[in-house]
Computed example of a mutant assay.
Amino acid sequence: MMRVDPKRELAGYTARRNVFDEIVVPPRRFAMVDGSGDPNTSDAYRDALATLYPFSYALKSIAKRELGRDHVVAPLEALWWADDMASFTTARDKKAWSWTVMILVPEGIAEVHTDAARSVAHRKDAPALDRLRIESFDEGLCIQTLHVGPYDEEGPVLARLHEQVIPERGFRMRGVHHEIYLGDPRRSAPERLRTILRQPVAKDRGR
C-alpha cells in the first residue's frame, strides 16, 4: 500500500532559513478549531489540540480501511492574528492573540469519512469536537521562510518579513499570519524546533 506524505508531495511544506520564498498555495481542506488567548496557558488551545490529533489519526485509519490508502498525518498548522500586529513582532502579547489551529485533510476524503472520524474522536472524549469544522482554505500568493529555534524568538524574523521583505518587493500583507510546525516541542530541544512562517501577500497598488 502506497503511503502518501504531504510534507514531501505538496508545495509549501518546505522552506529555507534566511531565505524568503514567494509561493502560490492552492486551495486545501483542513480540520480547524478556532480560539483565542495565550497558547501556553489557554485551556481552549489545549482542547483544540486534544481534538485535532485524535480526529486526524482516526481519519488516517478510516482512509486506510475504506479507501485502501495510507497517509502520513500532516503537521500541525496555525493561523494567528491580533488587532495590533506588534503583538507578534515586538510585544509578543499572547493574551491578545486569536488563532485557528488546523491539520490538512488529504484529497479524496469524503464527508462520510470525516463523519466517521468525528464519531471515533467523540468516543475518545475529544473536548473541542463541537468546534471542529472542515473547511477549504485558499491562500494564493504568499512569502514564507523557515525559523529554527524557540517560538518566542520568531519576533525579529517576522519584523523583517513584515517591515522589509514584503514592502521592498512591492507587496502588501493580506490575510493572517500562518505557521507550520515541522518540529515536535515534546521531543525536540527548543533550539532545534523548525517552523515555517508564512504571510499571504498581494501587489501593492500604490507602487
Rank of each mutant, 00 (worst) to 15 (best):
V24N: 13
P26E: 07
R28V: 01
R28N: 00
R28M: 12
R29Q: 10
R29Y: 03
R29W: 04
F30E: 02
D34Y: 05
G35A: 04
S36I: 00
D38Y: 08
D38T: 03
D38W: 07
P39R: 06
P39F: 11
N40Y: 12
T41P: 03
T41F: 14
T41G: 05
D43N: 06
D43W: 06
D43H: 05
A44S: 06
A44V: 08
D47C: 07
L49H: 05
L49I: 14
A50G: 07
T51L: 00
L52M: 06
Y53A: 04
P54N: 08
S56H: 03
Y57R: 11
A58C: 10
L59S: 04
K60M: 13
S61R: 15
K64S: 14
R65K: 15
R65A: 14
R65L: 12
E66D: 15
L67T: 09
G68N: 12
G68I: 11
D70M: 10
H71Q: 14
H71K: 11
H71P: 02
V72S: 13
V73H: 08
V73A: 11
P75F: 09
P75A: 13
P75Y: 12
L76T: 12
E77M: 08
W80C: 01
W81T: 04
W81Y: 11
W81I: 04
D84L: 01
M85R: 14
A86I: 06
F88D: 00
T90D: 14
T90R: 15
A91W: 09
R92N: 14
D93E: 15
D93G: 05
D93F: 04
K95C: 02
A96I: 01
A96V: 02
A96P: 01
W97K: 03
S98Y: 02
S98M: 08
T100P: 00
T100S: 07
T100Y: 01
V101S: 13
V101Q: 05
L104K: 07
V105F: 00
V105Q: 09
P106S: 05
P106F: 07
P106V: 03
G108K: 09
I109P: 01
A110R: 12
A110Q: 13
E111P: 01
V112C: 07
H113Q: 14
H113G: 02
H113K: 09
T114P: 03
D115Q: 15
D115E: 15
A116R: 14
A117I: 00
A117C: 05
R118S: 12
S119C: 10
S119H: 14
S119V: 09
V120A: 13
A121P: 04
H122N: 13
H122L: 12
H122T: 11
K124R: 15
K124L: 15
A126V: 08
A126M: 12
P127C: 09
A128L: 06
R131V: 03
L132P: 05
L132D: 10
L132F: 09
I134Y: 10
E135M: 13
E135C: 09
E135K: 14
E135S: 12
D138S: 15
E139F: 00
L141Y: 07
I143N: 02
Q144Y: 06
T145C: 03
T145H: 03
T145N: 05
L146M: 10
L146S: 04
L146I: 03
V148Q: 11
P150Q: 06
Y151P: 01
Y151D: 02
Y151L: 01
Y151S: 02
Y151T: 00
